[in-house]
Amino acid sequence: MTQFLFIRHGKHGGPEGVLLGRSDAAGLSEEGREQIRRLGFFVARPQVDLIYTSPRRRCLETATELAIALDAPVEADVALDEVDYGTWTGRSFDDLAHDSAWTAWNDQRDVVRIPDGERMRDVQIRVLRYLQCASAVHPDARIAVVTHAEVIRAAMLAERGLSLRQWADIDVEPGSVWLMERTAPTVEAVAS
């Protein structure tokens, strides 16, 4: 059985109240670095075998901090990338609150596509495929997965059998850890 420790990146040093999305404008703040250093000691036992991370700067910096405490290799994987927020990237949450598309997306995340961006269902599919592949490649490993709030939510909602519309039921704070276990699927030969 593969054990996944989903970890949201630490607090970033970018502007507060802005949807960073796939922007690499902000890395970790000093508070975020300290948050992850403390977290590393918490998740170090039992041993973490490897760390997979989103390619975004705030996640790469989080994974690098964790690698020091966990003595584990780091590998970036695009399957763990932030949601593509399209035209919303860089906008303030105050501004988005007046956008009818933002309201529709938050009410119906299972069907609404972000303008020039992704559907949450597609995000969920890519993270679930990642889990399937990683558990097949690394059976019996303990893997730290550094990613973003909505990617973690998508995985946890699927794990709990909940709808993407129930996103608010799962609060994913910076530096939080979520445990998920997966058994690699078996493949049986079929006689022809």
Score class of each variant (00 low, 15 high):
72 A>W: 15
99 D>E: 08
36 I>T: 12
134 A>I: 09
97 A>G: 07
112 V>G: 03
18 V>H: 08
16 E>T: 05
104 A>R: 15
145 V>E: 02
91 R>A: 04
119 R>V: 07
48 V>Q: 01
86 G>K: 06
183 T>G: 06
157 L>F: 05
113 R>L: 04
59 C>I: 00
43 V>Y: 14
25 A>V: 08
124 Q>D: 01
46 P>T: 09
29 S>N: 07
65 E>I: 15
57 R>G: 00
149 A>Q: 12
7 I>Q: 07
162 L>S: 02
142 R>F: 01
103 T>N: 02
14 G>R: 04
44 A>Q: 15
166 Q>F: 05
30 E>W: 12
16 E>A: 09
151 V>H: 06
190 V>A: 09
129 R>F: 02
129 R>G: 05
80 L>M: 08
171 D>Q: 10
121 R>M: 02
101 A>I: 04
90 G>V: 07
78 V>W: 12
87 T>D: 13
30 E>M: 08
49 D>S: 08
157 L>R: 14
165 R>K: 11
97 A>P: 06
146 V>I: 03
27 G>V: 15
179 L>A: 11
62 T>K: 13
136 A>C: 05
174 P>V: 01
34 E>C: 02
105 W>V: 00
169 D>C: 09
105 W>Y: 09
74 V>D: 04
172 V>W: 06
144 A>H: 09
119 R>I: 00
4 F>C: 04
183 T>V: 14
26 A>Y: 14
161 G>K: 14
147 T>I: 11
179 L>D: 02
73 P>S: 10
63 A>T: 07
83 V>S: 08
29 S>K: 06
180 M>Y: 11
132 Q>M: 05
185 P>E: 06
33 R>P: 03
130 Y>M: 07
64 T>I: 00
121 R>S: 13
10 G>Q: 01
45 R>M: 05
166 Q>Y: 05
109 R>E: 00
11 K>P: 08
157 L>D: 03
99 D>T: 10
93 F>D: 09
158 A>H: 15
103 T>F: 01
148 H>N: 06
97 A>I: 03
70 L>S: 08
172 V>F: 08
62 T>C: 06
128 L>M: 15
179 L>T: 12
115 P>I: 01
39 L>F: 06
176 S>V: 10
179 L>N: 10
165 R>Q: 05
81 D>H: 05
136 A>G: 08
170 I>W: 03
41 F>I: 04
19 L>A: 05
25 A>M: 02
32 G>N: 02
166 Q>P: 05
52 Y>D: 07
95 D>I: 00
142 R>G: 01
192 S>M: 06
97 A>D: 15
116 D>V: 00
124 Q>M: 11
134 A>P: 12
164 L>K: 09
189 A>N: 09
27 G>I: 13
91 R>V: 06
176 S>Q: 01
76 A>N: 10
187 V>Y: 13
62 T>F: 03
42 F>N: 10
159 E>W: 08
57 R>Q: 10
57 R>A: 04
81 D>W: 13
24 D>S: 04
133 C>H: 14
110 D>S: 11
141 A>G: 03
78 V>E: 10
97 A>R: 15
15 P>M: 02
103 T>M: 07
188 E>K: 13
70 L>N: 12
